[in-house]
Amino acid sequence: MRESLEKMLTKGVDNPLLRFGLGKAWLDEGNAAQAALHLACCVAQDPKYSAAWKLLGKAHQLQGDLPAARKAWEDGILAAQAHGDKQAEKEMAVFLKKLNKTSG
């Protein structure tokens, strides 16, 4: 799956959906650093892509970059609110709450 997405990117296809797919694939494979690169591209191309913000926060969290995770989820909540994506907003609010508890 990831390989075919990588081939599309190599051929010059680049859009938020492709970047989201690559980010999720890398995250599923346990490579948070590669996931974060693609998810950051995704939200740069489409700042309202709340699902990408959610996964970007997760990728940063898995790398131990808690400030970046917090920022991604805060930005993601704003994007979700602007887009009316209540579920993503709620999930990221829970992630932030847990992050704030663990990091003080």
Rank of each mutant, 00 (worst) to 15 (best):
1 M>Y: 07
2 R>S: 11
3 E>S: 12
3 E>C: 02
3 E>H: 02
5 L>V: 04
5 L>E: 13
5 L>I: 06
6 E>C: 09
6 E>Q: 10
7 K>P: 04
8 M>Y: 11
9 L>D: 10
10 T>W: 11
11 K>P: 03
13 V>F: 13
13 V>E: 15
16 P>M: 04
17 L>Q: 15
20 F>M: 11
20 F>W: 07
21 G>F: 06
21 G>Y: 07
21 G>D: 13
22 L>F: 04
23 G>D: 10
23 G>K: 07
25 A>S: 13
27 L>Q: 06
28 D>N: 05
30 G>A: 03
31 N>S: 03
32 A>F: 03
33 A>R: 12
34 Q>P: 10
36 A>G: 08
38 H>R: 10
39 L>G: 13
41 C>I: 01
42 C>S: 04
44 A>H: 05
45 Q>N: 05
45 Q>H: 07
47 P>W: 00
47 P>I: 07
47 P>E: 00
49 Y>D: 12
49 Y>Q: 12
50 S>C: 05
51 A>R: 08
52 A>E: 01
53 W>H: 13
53 W>Y: 05
54 K>W: 13
55 L>S: 04
55 L>D: 09
55 L>K: 07
56 L>H: 01
59 A>F: 01
60 H>Y: 14
66 L>M: 14
66 L>Q: 11
67 P>N: 02
69 A>P: 00
71 K>V: 07
71 K>Y: 00
71 K>W: 00
72 A>E: 06
74 E>F: 02
74 E>K: 10
76 G>S: 13
76 G>I: 08
77 I>K: 13
77 I>R: 11
78 L>S: 15
78 L>F: 08
79 A>Q: 02
81 Q>F: 06
83 H>N: 13
84 G>S: 04
85 D>M: 04
86 K>Q: 14
86 K>C: 02
86 K>D: 14
86 K>E: 13
89 E>R: 03
91 E>R: 02
92 M>Q: 04
92 M>A: 01
92 M>Y: 01
93 A>M: 08
93 A>E: 12
94 V>M: 11
95 F>W: 01
96 L>F: 00
96 L>H: 06
97 K>A: 15
97 K>M: 14
98 K>A: 14
98 K>N: 14
100 N>T: 12
100 N>V: 08
102 T>F: 15
103 S>W: 12
104 G>W: 09
